[in-house]
Design a protein around this nucleic acid. Structure first.
Length: 812
RNA sequence: GCCGCGGUGGCGGAAUUGGUAGACGCGCUGGACUUAAAAUCCAGUUGUGGCGACACAGUGCGGGUUCGAUUCCCGCCCGCGGCACCA
């Protein structure tokens, strides 16, 4: 099909311009001093088994529009792309299809890249990175070594989440409702030696910088991170045990309720059970309960619906330091071993769980806080809010918040306890018992312990292996390659063994945005001058599912890199926008499983990539999930054809068309603002309105048409570049300047105004008159209108409200 | 259960320092062009009543504030996302 007066043929122009842009190095980012920089970043794709569907490029289209607009506005733009390719999903796919993961990943990268190139994106491919490239992951390993040096990476034997199907441990962040996020299997707790990153050391900074660094992030993502970090301020203190040297340490945020403590509850994992085994008179019963609890899966144990069960440690009594009362000690699995001290004071009157537990086991419920209005009845339910203290001796009458302070002071003075901050967030379990990941650069020496691989030996390459299958023993398949495992200790030269665990999927993506800036640097992770030039990332676009994983990990690593002087900003991503999903026409997620996937190649074949780009941006608000509709692409192709057809109305002669220049000017502002605010749908709508008006004209002035092409070009780059060249230009449209909005012009045109007349707020009439008319004149005209005077009749006018240039409301 | 977001025509959606609800697009109806179809163009399209001018109703439900509420307040219902015994 040829181009004709009604339609253009995308096949004839799109490939041509993509080639021209690439050979002209149009998108190479340069560190020029005289231009302002703009670093716009996409979350790079993870290489999995399935290819791209129409949902994947949505975010990339948006960043491409922003990148092109910024270029036109005179910024030097960095817009890179790369590949995230280590990790479980890629490895599982490779195993399932019996391919070498290396080969599978490399082939898929080629395919992804080809698909991305069809979209005509502005990527600077000279900056391409790939997380499985040894020249890339040597720096991932380098960061790990630095963390090891600083004591932030350590070995641990704590119980960890183990996925029996993936045969590896998982971080807390990798769980979804107690199940493996990848395969859905139930995760069990297993004691295994692991590498762990001390992320909780950064908890406060991760929390406070969300607010103090003026991050332009959507609130719900910040909120998710805050909840995930889960900071709480409380007090840790000890209770003595009767007839014993042991003591119980507890953590509470409600010290004000301390006089209401009627028993203590400890977690089944608590070491005190073992220590007191001689003293506990029902020890065998207790042990049975403990074993039962530990055999439960995480899911069963955290099921809120289940009964609050527990068992008393008979013959054990703790002493409440505030009252001197002797209180029983229970073990119950609703207390978590890993949080706080693994032991809590139970205040049934003021905590719902304790209330249920106390009712079940007939334990006393002692009220020590009353509500201000004195309407709450402890007989009916626990009162969990702050209030006024009662039954609390010296503290009676104080408000909860003040009581907490005073009581904490008292504990500190008696040397029984002090204020303490706790986090829900746990340290990052960083090793995986799998093949497809960055080797952890550590050597285990019988004399020196864990020793870092010398920097000069990086990258420590992942060796080829015959069998990728995970063993399930807690060792990775690397353990079977003796020539790789056996080595010498870099410190003492003795025979030693390499660490065989690998890094998790999220390692490479935790710092990739830095490497784009200086991808080929052999000496350093990044050149400090380049880092200062480009960082922080000005705009980061990707899926919201990364709120508590990638985005938290990357912030953590970034802060560490700040501490060791590699980067200069506190936060990596200044502005973050999340992309809404594109759902299939049946309303479900697009997936091979449902065979409802729309392939972009087919749409591009039929309508061209510009029509697809414009449609995806026009569908609805960018961050909202929206269902795909093939007819929508028909509509945007129709719109592109309208723009194409307008060229035949362009005339080089003739004077200014006031009406059009006014509307054009308004559209320039609307489109500029809307791109800034990610309101692409209304930007396109404004362009449609302009085009509809231009269609009605017999003649279009060339200068106006060029402006239309310029403001439309970020959305439909191929079509606009083609039309630009058809008017005799030899240089790219993207080397021009974004049209300026002329503020004076906007008021110039408003010589008339349309006034709506309301009676008691109901619209009854409207008329047009000169924009210079005063309120009195307008009132006069309105009251003389036949319709209005008939409606008013002889009723009395109470008052008249005038909204300048819009509405006059007569109240009768 | 807690936190966050949302509910507007046949459909996707637009409009919020309170000021003409339904922009723009899809679909549908009628018309022009054509031997015919496609494409394109023109007109219409929230509902009810009316030939019509127009009237009444209308932004999840029930109240309230206001000259005026999709927008603000109170009480509910429904959907989506996140967290989930964190003491």
């Amino acid at each position: 099909m040829e181009n004709n007066n009604n339609h253009y043929n995308p096949q004839l122009i799109e490939k041509k311009w993509q080639l021209s842009w690439a050979t002209g190095n149009l998108y190479q980012s340069l560190e020029t001093k005289d231009q302002k920089k703009f670093y716009v970043l996409d979350m790079f794709p993870y290489i999995s088994g399935s290819g791209l569907h129409v949902g994947h490029p949505k975010g990339y289209i948006a960043t491409d529009i922003v990148a092109r607009q910024k270029m036109l506005q005179g910024f030097s733009v960095l817009h890179p792309m790369g590949w995230d390719a280590f990790g479980l999903p890629a490895e599982n796919y490779a195993i399932k299809n019996k391919i070498n993961p290396n080969i599978f990943v490399s082939e898929h990268i080629k395919r992804y890249k080809k698909q991305l190139e069809m979209f005509g994106f502005t990527y600077d491919w000279s900056k391409e990175i790939n997380t499985i490239d040894p020249e890339y992951y040597r720096w991932t390993q380098w960061i790990f070594l630095k963390m090891f040096e600083k004591g932030l990476a350590y070995e641990s034997e704590e119980p960890v989440n183990w996925c029996p199907s993936c045969k590896t441990v998982l971080a807390n962040e990798d769980l979804e409702g107690g199940k493996c996020e990848r395969c859905g299997s139930e995760v069990i707790q297993r004691k295994l030696r692991q590498w762990v990153l001390r992320m909780t050391d950064y908890a406060d900074r991760l929390l406070y910088d969300l607010d103090t660094e003026n991050l332009d992030w959507e609130d719900f993502i910040k909120e998710q991170q805050r909840n995930w970090i889960g900071r709480s301020e409380g007090v840790e203190f000890k209770l003595a045990l009767e007839d014993s040297d042991e003591e119980i340490r507890v953590y509470t945020t409600r010290l004000d309720t301390a006089f209401g403590v009627t028993y203590i509850v400890i977690a089944p994992e608590h070491q005190l059970i073992e220590k007191l085994k001689e003293k506990i008179s029902n020890y065998s019963e207790v042990l049975e309960y403990v074993n039962q609890a530990q055999n439960k899966t995480e899911l069963e144990r955290t099921d809120l619906q289940k009964d609050k069960k527990g068992i008393e440690l008979e013959n054990i009594k703790a002493i409440n330091p505030f009252t001197g009362e002797k209180i029983p000690v229970f073990v119950a699995d609703y207390v978590l071993g890993f949080y706080g001290t693994g032991a809590v004071i139970a205040v049934p009157a003021h905590d719902e769980r304790d209330y249920l537990f106390a009712k079940k086991y007939n334990l006393p419920i002692k009220q020590v806080i009353r509500d201000l209005e004195e309407v709450h009845s402890i007989q009916e339910s626990a009162f969990t809010e702050d209030g006024i203290l009662i039954n609390s001796e010296d503290y009676n009458g104080l408000h909860s918040s003040l009581a907490r302070e005073k009581m904490a002071e008292w504990l500190a003075k008696k040397d029984l306890g002090q204020k303490k901050v706790n986090y829900k967030m746990r340290n990052w379990v960083f090793s995986r018992q799998r093949y497809w990941g960055e080797p952890i650069p550590i050597i285990h020496c019988p004399s020196c312990g864990a020793v870092g691989v010398p920097e000069s030996e990086l990258p420590l390459k992942l060796p080829p292996v015959e069998n990728y299958e995970p063993s399930g023993t807690g060792e990775s398949p690397l353990a079977n390659i003796s020539e790789w495992v056996n080595t010498k200790c870099p410190k003492c030269g003795q025979e030693a063994k390499r660490e065989t665990n690998t890094m998790p999927q999220w390692a490479g993506s935790s710092w990739y945005y830095l490497r784009y800036i200086d991808p080929k640097n052999q000496e350093k992770l990044i050149d400090p001058n380049l880092e200062k030039h480009w960082m922080p990332v000005d705009l980061y676009v990707g899926g919201a599912e990364h709120a508590t994983r990638h985005l938290l990990y990357a912030r953590f690593w970034h802060k560490f890199l700040l501490d060791i002087g590699v980067v200069s900003t506190k936060e990596p991503f200044k502005r973050l926008v999340h992309v809404g999903l594109i759902l299939a026409e049946d309303g479900r997620k697009m997936s091979k499983r449902w065979s409802n996937v729309i392939n972009p190649d087919d749409i591009i074949q039929e309508f061209g990539v510009d029509a697809l780009r414009v449609y995806e941006m026009f569908m609805g608000p960018f961050s909202q999930s929206i269902t795909w509709n093939n007819n929508g692409v028909v509509g945007t192709k129709r719109f592109l054809d309208k723009v194409w057809k307008l060229q035949f109305k362009v005339s080089k002669e003739g004077g200014e068309n006031k009406k059009i220049s006014y509307l054009l000017n308004k559209t320039i502002k609307k489109v500029s603002d809307d791109i800034d605010n990610f309101k692409f749908n209304t930007a396109i709508s404004a362009l449609m309105i302009l085009v509809n008006e231009l269609e009605k004209e017999d003649k279009i002035i060339l200068a106006d048409y060029k402006k239309l092409l310029l403001i439309f070009s970020p959305f439909a780059p191929h079509l606009c570049e083609e039309l630009w060249s058809l008017f005799g230009h030899h240089d790219s449209i993207f080397l021009q300047s974004w049209p300026e909005y002329n503020e004076a012009l906007s008021s110039d045109f408003d010589q008339e105004m349309s006034i709506v007349v309301q009676i008691n707020g109901k619209i009854r009439d409207n008329f047009v008159l000169s924009a210079s008319a005063s309120q009195e004149e307008i009132e006069g005209v309105a009251l003389k209108r036949e319709k209005i005077s008939n409606l008013i009749g002889d009723q009395k006018i109470k008052k008249i409200i005038y909204v300048p240039k819009k509405i006059i409301n007569i109240v009768i």
